[in-house]
């Protein structure tokens, strides 16, 4: 179970959070997009092998949304940051541990 640093409440168990997929995908102006561009916004999110900045909400705590760097292979947790603030750099690998990908 991940141990997630809520910017407001500190480290809390993953069961207190909901996941919100890739961070930083702004709601586009719907009327300037083609159908396929709009569909891309609706259905397509980054899912890289490695570091990804993601949206999380501390639903069973403060109820606030925030963004978080997480390594999708090693499950390492990087820095958390608030929406509409500058995104910190993707962290390097902390443990250097090999992930199994399973």
């Amino acid at each position: 179970m991940l141990y997630i640093p809520c910017p407001h409440c500190g480290l809390r168990n993953e069961t207190e959070f909901h996941y919100g997929a890739e961070a930083g995908v702004a709601y586009p102006d719907p009327n300037t997009l083609s159908d396929s561009e709009w569909a891309e916004y609706l259905y397509v999110r980054a899912n890289p092998k490695g570091w990804l900045s993601e949206r999380w909400v501390h639903f069973a705590g403060c109820g606030r949304w925030f963004n978080l760097w997480r390594n999708t292979i090693t499950h390492e947790i990087g820095p958390a940051y608030l929406p509409f603030t500058k995104q910190p750099k993707a962290p390097g690998s902390i443990t250097g541990q090999e992930g199994s990908g399973k």
Partner: peptide, 10 residues
Amino acid sequence: AWLEEWLQTE
């Protein structure tokens, strides 16, 4: 949760 998500993140 839906209302909060739009208020907070958009």
